[in-house]
Amino acid sequence: MIKHRLPLLFFAVAALATPYSVQRIFLHTGIEKKMGTVQKIFYFHVPLAWIMMALGITCGVAAAIQLRKAATGRSRMAESLSIAAGELVLVTGLGVLITGPIWGHATWGRAWTWDARQVSTGLLWLVFAAFVLLRRYGAAGSERLAAALAVFGAVDVPVIYYAVKIWKTTHPTTDVVGSLPAQMWNSLWPALGALVCLTVGVLLVRIRQEQDAAELDDAWIALDDRGRALTLGGAP
């Protein structure tokens, strides 16, 4: 029972936290001096990027558990989690990759500047796109391969960030996060909370669906087995 209600709980919290954080961001937080109103994108863009990375690592860790604990209940749970997290990396990543350039278009005058963070987020998104593609279109038996891909994706998270950073050493990087007044940080947390609740709720729903799909498969197989036993003339 609680399993079914849990996503609802998260959605409810998100439904409360979202309007609160939006009014807080727009009505009670000062306008940033250099960038102006457009900096308001930051309050959802940055938490979403954090969530994306956390989901990527979750996906990798779950995939590793899936691989090491073969064919047990826990393996299935981990598999569902890795699929759900992998798909959500694509959704949140798309959000980051679209809101980022919109922000960039307003502040830098250009949407895509091959800034280190843009490139590394893009690469990370590609890795998980490969994961989802492989899960969806890979032949039977490729789900372990996809899991290995997810593990590498998670290992790649820090490597990508570091590699792109040293690749861009010649370019100045704008360090927005870290030098913000406390007021702006305080407005970031409700937004982060709202997004986390929304994401976790969706994640739970997706996990549940994946588990249901697995159980349905099992049921179909059991039915097929019984049908075969009957047609072969054996006693049911």
Partner: peptide, 15 residues
């Protein structure tokens, strides 16, 4: 090893 040792594929995918 886990990747090569193949599949704990869902039965329905195998059948």
């Amino acid at each position: 090893e886990p990747v090569l040792l193949g599949s704990n594929a869902r039965p329905a995918e195998r059948r």
